[in-house]
């Protein structure tokens, strides 16, 4: 049996190894994010034709939908790593869960604001308390709750465990957000893009949307790596490897 995968994972979860690993990958992730983002937004804003019903207002979709997907995707990552952190007490899993929360909150905030800016010209209102919008707002409050709980404890690892618990409970909300347009009669339009079937959107509009989505995934990786590296320095500040980095980079 090949056991190099668990061995490699075990090694990677040690803070100094992950610090170096993330430091090597992060610039590449950011470069991919910027490149794909530029291509996708050019395709969406310039190349794609106006919508036959919504005119040019629909172009908000190219940031609204990728952000909405990221708000749920990041919550999933946070929930899974929170579970790993609680069960196996792996420090890196705690860091990934807790540093995902601000990025997820950022994307959820973008989703709500861009949705509002899209809703005003199309529905005639900035906000309505319908299932999709309300559940997305609850998602933002869950992120903020996780961040707040994490910082409410003097001992950071104790705070991380409490916040991880909240993150796991809150994961119930993710399918509610996703299926809210199917389960309830809402003002929000149904899913346009379907991974396993026919998407109700023209290819000229679909490829920029998917490209920006990929860009936001890379952005998340880059941001998470940067945040995790900083957090590891704070958590391991007494250790020799951190002091070496501080001595090397603090002079600048």
């Amino acid at each position: 049996m090949s056991n190099w995968i668990p061995l490699w994972l075990h090694k990677l979860s040690s803070p100094p190894t992950f610090y170096r690993f993330a430091g090597t990958l992060r610039p590449w992730m950011m470069a991919f994010a910027l490149l794909l983002g530029a291509i996708g937004l050019y395709g969406g804003l310039v190349l794609a034709p106006p919508d036959y019903q919504q005119g040019d207002a629909y172009r908000i979709i190219f940031i609204h939908v990728p952000s909405a997907w990221m708000s749920m995707f990041i919550y999933g990552v946070m929930g899974v790593s929170a579970f790993i952190a609680l069960v196996w007490r792996i420090k890196l899993a705690e860091v990934v869960a807790m540093e995902s929360a601000p990025i997820g909150a950022a994307f959820t905030f973008i989703t709500l604001v861009t949705g509002s800016l899209w809703g005003k010209p199309m529905w005639g209102t900035w906000w309505t308390w319908d299932a999709r919008l309300t559940s997305e707002l609850v998602l933002l409050f869950l992120y903020l709750g996780v961040i707040g709980l994490y910082h409410a404890f003097e001992d950071r690892r104790q705070g991380a465990r409490a916040a991880a618990f909240l993150a796991i409970i809150g994961i119930i909300n993710v399918p509610i957000v996703h299926y809210s347009v199917t389960w309830w009669n809402t003002l929000h339009q149904g899913s346009t893009v379907n991974i396993f079937g026919h998407s109700k959107i023209a290819w000229d509009m679909l490829w920029p949307l998917l490209t920006v989505t990929l860009a936001t995934k890379f952005y998340y990786a880059a941001s998470l790596f940067r945040r995790a590296r900083t957090d590891l320095l704070a958590l391991e500040s007494g250790k020799e490897w951190v002091r070496q980095i501080a001595a090397r980079e603090g002079k600048r």
């Binding site: 005119g55 207002a57 908000i60 905030f109 005003k120 010209p121």
Partner: peptide
């Protein structure tokens, strides 16, 4: 933006400002 400039551009501005702050 076909008359929707006041909605489209602020949306993009929010997107970039929030992500730059996050970085």
């Amino acid at each position: 933006m076909g008359g929707y400039a006041v909605y489209v551009w602020p949306a993009y501005a929010v997107f970039f400002i929030v992500l730059i702050a996050d970085t």
